[in-house]
Design a protein around this nucleic acid. Structure first.
Lengths: 337, 337
DNA sequence: CTGAAAGCGCTAACAG
DNA sequence: CTGTTAGCGCTTTCAG
């Protein structure tokens, strides 16, 4: 592979001049054309590593996700990739595979790689390592916050999303509303639960503890907790499931027991993927602006890499309730209403 | 950030010795401990770029996918990432966003990055660029082949998968079996179509041209072609949809028209994701060993990067028909059987 | 506007 | 077993 030296030789000039041209410096028209020709001829390409060694920049950023096959993070990655591509950065997508140790490893690796910035949806609960890294490299957190760590963060308005979902159920006359919460270790888990509570409070309605179940955002827990819910003496007329994967599990449970949406049970979930449209009936769901999350976070990271200012920002994007056909109006509407 | 020189100074030895230790060379026990201590103290990490500049290896591989949010490729990436991680390589996942020009760009970029190997699920139909790249860097193709290009490739047994799906329908007495094919520019599109044809031939059954529709593997075409199918004078009693996304579209169409699976129409699809289990009834589907595809391809790439032999291999992995509840037995079984 | 020279951090002979 | 040396390909003063 040709080097800058080769180009210089062929173009009858010096490496320095070639470099200057390559980096947008001013060069006499004649030499420029000669250089461009040589570059063509030799099929020369910058050696990014050599350049990086010199400039101490890699023009590379990374996004660490909990799981590559999780649609939520995949969509965010899509948005992020686009922004960085436009900005001339190369973008690495890495999965921690829901393994905190793996995440640590990746972080170490990125340090070694000298990436210029990091997008992180952490699977860790400790913020020690990240805190250290932030001293050297700009980091922006996505969707998952770390305890006691002031950092640039972008996430969605979970409380409001859950509020809207619950409210939609209440509005149709439901009072016995089950919820399958996410893990309370995660902010998203806590916030969505809070949205549910707040809706009950705002409408002056009593909550029923036995209808509040906790899952872990995975399919299996959606299944298990839905089964639990159905076992309750006072069976819910509606349920709010706090993420897509638990929603899958919950539906499997309903199908098994031949419980129909919405005739036997009204259904709302957080996250809006293809399933919501494809299911029969289509599912009412809370949509998150995933691609935008990725874009927004990338924009912030880009800014931080440029100015390296110390002040941190937290950006909340809006969620959106999409009404479809999975909520039935309760007959005895007037009872409490 | 500390360099190898700093470590050497603190450990009272030379950079060369530190380097040797770092690369698994033999070092006196005493110096080793001194060096390790220094590394600890200084929080030293290898500067991958500097190392790469010297060794002309980046210990980085890339996988270029058509679309980050396509489950098929995401799963493959998952498998690939695992293998490379184990092998000490860093793994970049890049999306061409279904844009051939974007893919070209990425390929150029990777050349500049001096990656050691490339996994490619190409969105291109021209093999020129890839051919050139293969002269410098090992490439293994995944699922998408390129015309007139002999290359290491891993894909699945599409013909057989489609055959099994069609056969399952035939076995239950169906004769009017619609198919929504993938794009015939893609090998997978052609092969799955061929599997359908072959099943008809093997069973000595006549095919009905009006029940053969062509989509492009996207949701919208699944919807459109299913609508077409339902318009036919001789309406199919069963349908085979050639990939997941078209399957989503097809189901939307069925729901709209209130056509029930399997009572009104039996249904089989290529690709087996959560939907198949979650849908009511659960869908019979052809499963692809996605993670294994990624693992297999990575293993091959690893081998090529090591031996750089010229001979190419094509690896076909088996598909698997998973029977669930979306096929109804036709009453008039005896008619043709 | 251009070129010579130094050096980024690392590794790989080679000589000790 | 260890240290010296010479670059890898690039950018960046600095002098011309």
């Amino acid at each position: 592979m040709a080097t800058i030296k080769d180009v210089a030789r062929v173009a009858n000039t010096s490496p320095a001049t070639v470099s200057r041209l390559l980096n947008g410096g001013r060069v006499k028209k004649a030499t420029e054309t000669a250089i461009r020709k040589a570059i063509q001829e030799l099929d020369y390409r910058v050696h990014t590593m050599a350049r990086g060694l010199k400039t101490k920049k890699s023009y590379t950023v990374a996004y660490i996700v909990p799981d590559l096959t999780n649609m939520f993070f995949a969509q965010i990655a899509k948005g992020a990739q686009e922004i960085f591509h436009q900005a001339g950065y190369s973008f690495m997508l890495l999965s921690a595979d829901n393994n905190p140790e793996r995440e640590e490893e990746i972080l170490r690796f990125l340090l070694s790689k000298k990436v210029d910035g990091i997008l992180l949806s952490s699977v860790t609960t400790s913020s020690q390592q990240v805190k250290e890294i932030m001293e050297n490299i700009p980091v922006v957190l996505i969707d998952r916050v770390l305890p006691n760590l002031e950092a640039d963060t972008v996430l969605v308005d979970n409380v409001n999303g859950a509020y809207l979902a619950t409210e939609a159920l209440i509005a149709e006359g439901h009072r016995k509303i089950g919820i399958i919460c996410g893990p309370q270790e995660l902010l998203t888990g806590r916030e969505r639960y809070r949205g549910y509570i707040r809706a009950f409070e705002d409408y002056g309605l009593p909550m029923n503890e036995s209808l509040i179940k906790f899952g872990d955002f995975e399919i299996s827990s959606g299944y298990a907790q839905m089964c639990e819910l159905l076992k309750q003496p006072e069976r819910p007329t509606a349920v709010f499931v706090c993420n897509y994967y638990m929603c899958l599990g919950a539906i499997i449970a309903l199908n098994e027991k031949n419980i129909k949406i919405p005739e036997d049970l009204s259904f709302v979930s957080f996250d809006d993927y293809e399933l919501s449209q494809v299911y029969n009936p289509p599912l009412t769901a809370v949509e998150q602006p995933m691609v935008e999350i990725g874009e927004e976070a990338s924009q912030i990271l880009l800014k931080r890499m440029a100015d390296n200012s110390k002040e941190k920002c937290v950006k909340r994007l809006k969620t959106n309730l999409i009404k479809r056909g999975s909520i039935k109006t309760v007959d005895s509407f007037q009872l409490n209403g």
